[in-house]
Design a protein around this nucleic acid. Structure first.
Lengths: 225, 225
DNA sequence: TAGAACTTTGCATGCCTTGCAGAAATGCGT
DNA sequence: ACGCATTTCTGCAAGGCATGCAAAGTTCTA
C-alpha cells in the first residue's frame, strides 16, 4: 500500500490526512502553551486557545481530552519509543543499554524544542494539577523501566530491587528538567561534561548507584519477588 | 486558657467546634469513598456525596476544594507529621532514624483504617486522574526526604544522591500499598517478617540499597551539588 | 468524478468550582 | 440563662470543562 503521489516520504506519517492532523495538533499545543505561559493556565480558556490555533473549541477537546494534556503533547510518544526500544533489546543488551540509546535518540528532539520545554516548565510550576500529571508520567516511565530491569534480574516487576532501581534512575530526569523549585542548576546549561551530554553523565552515575544498591541486597531473601 | 468543662482532653483538637469540624470532614470523606467504591468515581456526583453525608453540596466543596481530594483525606496530615519529625531530629539522628520512627508511629493509624485503604486503592486504580494525584503526593514526600538526606550529606537538595536516595526509599510505599496493577503481593498480608512489620523490613532493605549506592558515588565529582 | 471514510464543527447537557450573602450554629462574657 | 461576636453552613448564580450526537466539510479511493 505505498502511496504513489509522495516519492520520498522517509518515515513521516505518510498520508496527507495524517500529516495535516499532526500539524493541527502541534499548532494547537503550541498556541496553548504560549497562552498558558503568558496569561496563566487557569486564566486561559479553551475557546481562547481555539481562536489562537484557528480551530473550533470542540476540536481542541477532540485532540486533547483534558486541558492538562495540552501541556504534555509529546510525552506519550516519547515513552512509546522507550517501550519499543526496551522491547527490541536483544538478550545481550541490558536495560541500561537500551536506556542510554533511547536518551541519545531523544536528546536532539529535546534540544530542538528547548524554548517550549522551558515554557512547559514555567507553566507546570504554577499549577499543582499539572505537577500531578507530570508525576503521573514519571510513574509510567518508571513502570517501563522497572519491568525491564525485573526481566534482567529474573525478578518480579513488583520486587523491591527493580522498583528502587527504576525510581532512582528516573530521578535524573527530575534533576535535568529542574522539576523542583530551585530549578535548573543544570537545566540552564544544556552543556556537556567531558564531552558528554549532562543527562548521559547523570545516567551513568545513576546506573552505578543502582548497581551498587542491587549488589548490596543480593544475599538477602527476596521479599516481594 | 484551660477549658473548665472538659477534664481530660488529652491531645485532641480541644475546641468543640474544631472537633465537630473534624467529624464532619471524616463523615464526608467516608461517604464519598464508599460511593466511589460502589458506583465509580466519575459516576458519583458531589450532590450524592452530600446527601450521604447529610450536608449541603456546597459544604463538601468547602471541605474538599477538588473532588479528587476526597480520596486522600489524610495524606496531608501524615506528611505534616513526617516533616515535623524530620525537623525535630537531633544532630545525631539520621534521616533514616526519623523515617523509621515516623513509619512506626503511622503504622497503627494505617492498620486501623485498613478497610478504607483498600477501598482507596480500588478507587484510585480505576481513574488516571486519581493516580496522578497519588503520584503528586509521592513527589511531595520524596521532596521532604531528599531535603533531609541532603542535609545529612551536606549536599544540595537537588543533587543526584539525595534525589535518588529519596526516590528509591519511597518506592517501598508503592510496593506495600500495591500502587501497581499486580497489587498487593504484600499488601494482602499485613503481616510481619521476623517479628517486624513488612514495611519496616522493606525500609531496612531500601536503606541498605541507598547506602551502598551513595557510597559507590563518593569518589565522583558532584554534578548538581 | 462519485461515493466512502474521516475530520471538523455547533449544539446541548451535565458536572465541578467558586464567590457572595443570608441563615444557622457555636463560643464567650455577663 | 441570655445576648452578642465569631465561625460555619447553605442556597444561588455564573463560568468553564468534558462529551455525545448529528450535520457540514475534507480527503481518499476506485
Amino acid at each position: 500500500m505505498v502511496n504513489a503521489t509522495t516519492p520520498s516520504e522517509g518515515f513521516e506519517p505518510a498520508g496527507l490526512r495524517e500529516r495535516k492532523k499532526q500539524r493541527t495538533r502541534q499548532t494547537i499545543a503550541r498556541a496553548a502553551l504560549e497562552l498558558f505561559d503568558r496569561d496563566g493556565f487557569h486564566e486561559t480558556t479553551i475557546p481562547q486557545i481555539a481562536a489562537a490555533a484557528d480551530v473550533s473549541p470542540r476540536t481542541v477537546s477532540a485532540y486533547f481530552p483534558a486541558k492538562e494534556d495540552l501541556v504534555f503533547p509529546d510525552q506519550e510518544d516519547s515513552f512509546a519509543r522507550l517501550a519499543t526500544r526496551l522491547r527490541a533489546r536483544s538478550g545481550e543488551e541490558t536495560t541500561a543499554d537500551a536506556l542510554r540509546d533511547w536518551i541519545g535518540a531523544e536528546l536532539p528532539r529535546w534540544a530542538e524544542r528547548d524554548a517550549e520545554m522551558r515554557m512547559q516548565r514555567r507553566v507546570v510550576d504554577t499549577d499543582d494539577g499539572l505537577k500531578a500529571v507530570e508525576q503521573r508520567y514519571r510513574a509510567l516511565g518508571e513502570e517501563l523501566i522497572a519491568a525491564a530491569i525485573a526481566e534482567d534480574l529474573g525478578a518480579s516487576p513488583d520486587a523491591l530491587e527493580p522498583r528502587m532501581a527504576a525510581a532512582a534512575t528516573f530521578a535524573i530526569f527530575g534533576i535535568v528538567g529542574g522539576e523542583h523549585e530551585g530549578k535548573g542548576q543544570i537545566a540552564d546549561e544544556h552543556g556537556c561534561i567531558d564531552g558528554e551530554p549532562v543527562l548521559l553523565h547523570l545516567l551513568d552515575r545513576a546506573l552505578r548507584f543502582v548497581d551498587a544498591g542491587i549488589r548490596s541486597l543480593q544475599g538477602d531473601a527476596p521479599v516481594a519477588g
